[in-house]
Design a protein around this nucleic acid. Structure first.
Lengths: 209, 209
DNA sequence: TAGATTGTTAATCGATTAACAATC
DNA sequence: TAGATTGTTAATCGATTAACAATC
C-alpha cells in the first residue's frame, strides 16, 4: 500500500487551496510547474504528490484537469465524508475553533462542546450548546465520535485525554501546550504554537539587527 | 555553522516542556533515554538534538544537568530575549493569542493589536488596546516589530502581508488559511489547521469502523 | 509537427538509527 | 569497580531532486 509521510500529508491542503483559487479564476487545467510556483515547492515534488492521490493522469503538454484534481484531493483528504468531533474546553481557542467555518468544508462536524465553567455551561456558541464536562464520558460512550479536540488548559489536558482513551476515541487533536501520554491505539496530533514559533524565530534571527 | 532542520526545531519546545515537568518534580539530572520515553522519540535523536544546543556535556552514567539543560534550551529558543510582535485581526483566534499567557515565557511580546472593525477599535483586550488597521503601516514604520501575526480572514491576509513586506517586518506568523506570496527576504511561518487535521484524519482512517 | 508537460526511474541528499569506544 | 550513559562515527533509511523517454 502507498504510504504518505507527515510532511507530504501536510502539503495536500495547501495544494487544494491554490487549486481552488485557480478554479475560481476560471482555469480548466494546471501544470505541476504552475502549482510549484504558487506553493513554493519543487515541480518534481508536486508531480509525485499529486500522482499519489489521483489516478486521473495528466495530459502531456496541457497539464491536469483542475476540476478532477480538486475532487480527488478532497476525496483523499476525507472532505466528502463526515468526521464527527467533540470539543472540550470552550475558552478563547475553543471558541475560535467552534466558530471556524472552514471545518464544515473539510467534513469536520463538531457535534458537541464541553467545559467545566458553570458560567459557560448551557450557553450557546454558534450552533453548539456547551455541556458540562462531567457528562463528557457518558457522551463519548454513547456517541463514539471520531475525534476529540482537546482545548483545555495544560493542567487538565491529560485527564481529558485519559477519558478519550478509555472510551476508544480514535484521534485526539491536542491544542493544549503539553505532551499527552496515551495508549498507542489512540492517535494524537499536536497543534504546538511553541514549535511553530521556534521555527519562525530561528529563521528570522539572522535578519534581526 | 550548525544547521537545524524544521522538524528538529519543532522538537525543542517539546523537550523543554517535559524537562520543566521533571524539574518541577525535583529531579536534578535526566538521561536521554528518559526524555526519549517521555516525548516518544528515539534516544539517539534526543542525544543529537541536545548536543546541538548545549555545550555542557552530560555525565556518563548520570545524564545531563537538568537546570543547565533547561537554561540552554531556553537560550537557544530565544526565550531570554524579547521578540516584539504586532497582531492583526482581533477575531476569536486573534483574541485567543492575545490572551495566551505562554508567549510571555517565550519572550514574545505582543506590543499592539489591529482590526478594521469600528466596534473593536479602541477596546482593550487584556493589556492591549485595539488600534485601527489603517494606522498599521505607520506603526510598523515607526516601531519596527520583529514579527507580524496575521489573523485576519483569508481574503484580507495577503494585503496585510504586503504591508508587512513593505515595512521590512522580518517574520510573518500566518494564521490565515491562505498561501501568502512575499519577497524571499520575508520569512513566513504558517499555522495551518487544515494540514494538521489532514495528518490526524489520515492516521485515524484505519481505526474508523 | 514542435513544444510543453507528463509519469517514472535513477541519483543525490539529508535525517534517523545503530553501534561502540570513552568515561564518570 | 561495574554499570549506565555519554558523544560520535558509520550504516541505513527515506525523501527530495534530477534526468529523460513517452505523448497529447
Amino acid at each position: 500500500m502507498k504510504t504518505y509521510s507527515k510532511n507530504q500529508l501536510r502539503r495536500y491542503p495547501v495544494y487544494l487551496r491554490v487549486l481552488r483559487e485557480l478554479e475560481a479564476k476560471g482555469n480548466g487545467f494546471v501544470s505541476s510547474n504552475q502549482i510549484a510556483q504558487l506553493v513554493g515547492n519543487s515541480e518534481e515534488q508536486v508531480k509525485k504528490d499529486l500522482a499519489a492521490v489521483s489516478d486521473a493522469s495528466g495530459m502531456p503538454g496541457r497539464g491536469r484537469d483542475l476540476r478532477r484534481l480538486v475532487h480527488d484531493l478532497e476525496a483523499f483528504l476525507g472532505y466528502h465524508d463526515v468526521t464527527r468531533a467533540v470539543l472540550v474546553g470552550a475558552g478563547r481557542m475553543g471558541q475560535a475553533l467552534l466558530d471556524y467555518p472552514g471545518f464544515q468544508q473539510m467534513g469536520l462536524d463538531i457535534v458537541a462542546a464541553f467545559d467545566s465553567d458553570p458560567v459557560k455551561i448551557g450557553t450557546r456558541l454558534g450552533e453548539t450548546e456547551v455541556k458540562d464536562v462531567a457528562t463528557l464520558e457518558e457522551f463519548l460512550s454513547l456517541e463514539h465520535p471520531d475525534i476529540l479536540i482537546d482545548c483545555v488548559p495544560a493542567s487538565a489536558a491529560q485527564a481529558i485525554a485519559d477519558i478519550a482513551v478509555r472510551n476508544k476515541v480514535p484521534g485526539i487533536w491536542n491544542f493544549a501546550p503539553t505532551v499527552l501520554d496515551v495508549k498507542e491505539s489512540t492517535i494524537v496530533e499536536n497543534v504546538n504554537l511553541a514549535s511553530s514559533l521556534a521555527v519562525l524565530s530561528h529563521r528570522i534571527k539572522p535578519l534581526l539587527s
